[in-house]
Each structure stands twice: as C-alpha cells, then as structure tokens.
Lab assay of single mutants.
Amino acid sequence: MSIQHFRVALIPFFAAFCLPVFAHPETLVKVKDAEDQLGARVGYIELDLNSGKILESFRPEERFPMMSTFKVLLCGAVLSRVDAGQEQLGRRIHYSQNDLVEYSPVTEKHLTDGMTVRELCSAAITMSDNTAANLLLTTIGGPKELTAFLHNMGDHVTRLDRWEPELNEAIPNDERDTTMPAAMATTLRKLLTGELLTLASRQQLIDWMEADKVAGPLLRSALPAGWFIADKSGAGERGSRGIIAALGPDGKPSRIVVIYTTGSQATMDERNRQIAEIGASLIKHW
C-alpha cells in the first residue's frame, strides 16, 4: 500500500482519535458579512469528516447552483462504474471539434489522439474542462443518470439537468442544476469515506481534487503551510461562485467545507476574496 493510499485508508482512524471539535460562531459572522459585502445569498456548511456531524452552517438547506462543483460527483459516478466493471479508466475516447464547448483548455489539445477516461476526469476536476465533463456525462448516460446515481446514494436534493455550459445559467428560483450545502457536503463525505467506492477509487477521487489547479484564489489562499486540501470550485452566471473541499491540518483532511453564493453584482475577484476570507476565519478558529 502506498503512503497516499495509507493516508486515505486511515482518515477515519486518525479522526477518531482527534480531540473533540467545537464550532466557532466567528466564522458564521464572516459568512454573514460576506453576504453584506456581496449583496447576495451565501450558503455555508462545515462537517466533521469522521462523524458527519454538522459543526457550523448557514442557509444549509437553500438551493444554490452547483456550477462546476458537480464534476466531482460526476467522476465519482464514473469511478463507481469502474468498480462495477462497467468502465475502464484506460479506455480512450475520441471526439471532434464539434464536441468542444466553451472553456476546454485540455480537451482542445487532444482532438487528434483523444483522451482516456482517467485523463478526462483529471481534466474535468483539476482544470474544470467543460468538454471533458460533457464527454464523461455521455459515458454514464447524461445528466439524468448522474441525478439517479445521487438518488441511489441517498441524495434526493442534488440534481443535474443540463450539460456544460448551460448548467451554469443560475436563474433565480430555478431548481435545475442545483444542490443544497448540506446535501453536497453529505454526498461528498460519502464519496470520500464511505463504502460506495473502493479504496482505490476513493484515493483516485481525492487525488484529482488535491491536484486542483484553478481554485488557488479561494480556500487555498488562506491555508497555512502543512495543511491538506482537496477541492473543486465552480463559477456561473449572475454572480455565482462555489467551492467544495476536504481539508485539515497535519497533512490530512478532517472536515468537509461547502460554500456557495449566487445573485451578486460583485466582480469575480471580490467573490473570490470573500470566500478566501471565510476560509481564513475557519482556519483561525479551527
């Protein structure tokens, strides 16, 4: 067993022997301040990774656009098919120029040779490549099948209805392509620590998230040296922004954090800054 596999296998073990965790309302004060600064709703939840206990939450059962955070769930569904012998990570998928959609920095470079399922998941999570996500959605049967996968996990809230990039439209009061912070946090925890996926697939999923290259201005910008984070960000229309993450000190994750916002007129930089400040408060009061 590799060191990384050992780390993920012992996530519940280490967490069980940690000192009790206590909620700190100071972080919620910052979440509410972010709402004021952005002029928009902000949803927040913080779960203990081992027990699933909610440590703090704000608007945990209000719907927010998922945006690209759905790509972690998508690759979880792909990995479940791999575990069941219905898919192979090494299978190569070929596609054409007509398949390319807006923001496809990886797939646009491989029109000639195609990409493997493993490479597509890596591109979808680490670079948020939209064509990679659409190609992977095709392998599982489309958005409705991802929703069905989530329902089978016990998540009857999260739903995907459309493809990239239309799913980022974020129309107010439109339930399409949305989740709730509580539902997303619980589902992410199941994917990373539950028995739904094999140990190898859980490790692969967290490795992809740990290698995320496009979430630097968010929670990662607030992390002290030595902290662990595996995350996936999302951005959408109407001032929408979000991030889902597993993080913790001492090089291992111990909490799940989900943050979503929508309806702001603020710039992307300002949305990023507010999420980073929430992260800084979380870490300060850990």
Rank of each mutant, 00 (worst) to 15 (best):
R91E: 14
L38Q: 13
A215V: 12
M115I: 05
V72M: 02
K252G: 09
I140D: 05
D174N: 13
A40L: 08
H24Q: 08
T187Y: 15
V101C: 08
R118H: 09
G248H: 13
L55G: 11
T139E: 14
N168C: 07
G251F: 12
W286Y: 07
Q97K: 14
S201P: 10
E26K: 03
I140F: 12
I206R: 14
A123E: 08
N272M: 15
L55S: 06
A40I: 04
L38A: 11
L219S: 08
N272P: 04
L188I: 15
D36Y: 03
S80H: 15
L160I: 07
K190G: 09
T187F: 15
D207P: 09
S233M: 14
R220D: 12
L205R: 00
R273D: 03
T261F: 08
A183F: 11
F58V: 14
V31F: 04
E145D: 10
M66F: 13
N134C: 05
N152K: 13
F70I: 14
T267Q: 10
V258H: 00
E237Q: 12
H24A: 07
R59Q: 15
L111E: 09
G154S: 12
G142I: 02
Q265M: 07
S96L: 13
D269I: 02
D155T: 02
K53E: 05
T187K: 12
S233R: 01
E46V: 14
T27Q: 11
A148D: 11
L135Y: 03
R220Q: 08
D207T: 04
A77L: 07
V257G: 04
T69V: 09
N130L: 03
D250S: 02
A225W: 14
Y103L: 03
L205N: 01
I243W: 14
I259K: 00
E61M: 09
L150P: 01
F149I: 08
K71A: 00
S221K: 02
T116D: 12
L137C: 10
E108W: 15
L218T: 09
A123C: 05
K53P: 11
T27I: 08
T147Y: 05
R202K: 04
L282M: 08
D161L: 06
E108S: 15
T27R: 08
D129I: 00
V82Y: 09
L136C: 13
P224N: 15
Q204S: 05
L38K: 13
V106Q: 15
L196A: 06
D161E: 04
L111G: 08
S254Q: 05
L223W: 13
T262H: 07
A77H: 05
I54A: 08
G114Q: 08
L47P: 00
R271D: 15
I54L: 09
V101Y: 05
G194F: 09
I256C: 12
G154H: 09
M209H: 00
N98I: 06
L218I: 02
R159H: 08
S281D: 12
G279W: 06
P143T: 14
D48V: 03
A170I: 02
E210W: 11
S80F: 15
D161M: 04
F149D: 09
M66I: 04
S254K: 02
Q203E: 04
A185T: 05
T107M: 03
I275Y: 09
A235L: 14
H94N: 03
D83N: 06
M115H: 02
A235H: 12
T179V: 02
G248M: 02
T69H: 11
Y260V: 09
M268N: 14
K144F: 05
E195I: 03
A34W: 04
L191A: 12
G154E: 13
L136A: 09
T262C: 09
M127V: 11
I275G: 01
R202E: 12
S96T: 08
A124N: 06
W208K: 01
R202T: 12
S281P: 07
R41G: 07
L205W: 09
N130R: 00
L73K: 01
R273Q: 11
L100V: 08
F70T: 08
D174P: 12
V157C: 03
W163K: 06
D33N: 02
T138L: 12
Q274D: 09
Y44L: 04
Q97Y: 08
E26H: 13
A77E: 15
I275H: 10
R118V: 07
S122P: 09
M115T: 05
S122N: 07
E195T: 14
Y260A: 08
L137Q: 07
M127K: 08
A123L: 09
K109G: 06
E56S: 10
K32F: 15
Q97L: 09
G242T: 13
Y95P: 10
C75S: 05
G154F: 10
G43S: 08
T107H: 01
W286G: 04
L219K: 11
E61P: 01
A124H: 00
T126W: 11
D33T: 03
R59V: 03
V257D: 01
F228R: 15
T126F: 05
I275C: 11
P165E: 07
Q274P: 07
L282I: 02
P249Q: 12
V82F: 09
K53R: 13
P253H: 03
E46P: 00
D269K: 03
A182P: 06
I275F: 15
K32T: 15
D231K: 05
L49C: 12
G85D: 08
G90K: 09
E169P: 05
L197F: 15
L188C: 02
L218P: 06
E56D: 10
E62F: 01
E277L: 11
E102I: 02
L49N: 10
Q204W: 03
A132K: 00
F149T: 09
V29I: 08
Q88N: 15
V101Q: 04
K53C: 12
P25E: 07
H94M: 03
G43R: 00
D48C: 14
S264R: 10
G76T: 12
E175F: 08
I243F: 14
V257N: 14
E169R: 04
D155K: 01
T262W: 08
W163I: 07
E145T: 12
P60W: 09
D83L: 04
A77C: 09
N173E: 04
H151T: 08
S221Q: 05
A183C: 06
N272W: 03
G234S: 11
Q86W: 09
E108T: 14
V29E: 15
A225P: 09
A211P: 13
D212C: 15
V214Q: 07
D36T: 08
M209E: 01
R63I: 14
G39K: 03
F58P: 00
N173I: 04
Y260I: 02
I45H: 11
P253E: 02
V214N: 07
D155C: 06
T138G: 08
A183I: 12
V106H: 15
W227G: 07
V106N: 15
S104V: 11
G39M: 04
S96P: 11
A183R: 13
R189K: 05
L49F: 13
K32S: 13
A148E: 08
R92I: 06
Q97N: 02
A280H: 14
S128F: 00
S281N: 05
I229K: 09
T198H: 05
V214W: 12
S254M: 04
L136E: 01
Q274R: 08
P253S: 06
M209C: 13
G234K: 00
T262P: 03
L282K: 13
E175Y: 10
G216W: 04
G234Q: 01
A133E: 01
P105S: 09
I244Q: 01
D269P: 07
T261A: 11
L89C: 08
L73C: 04
G85V: 06
Y260S: 09
L192C: 09
D250F: 03
W227K: 00
W208D: 05
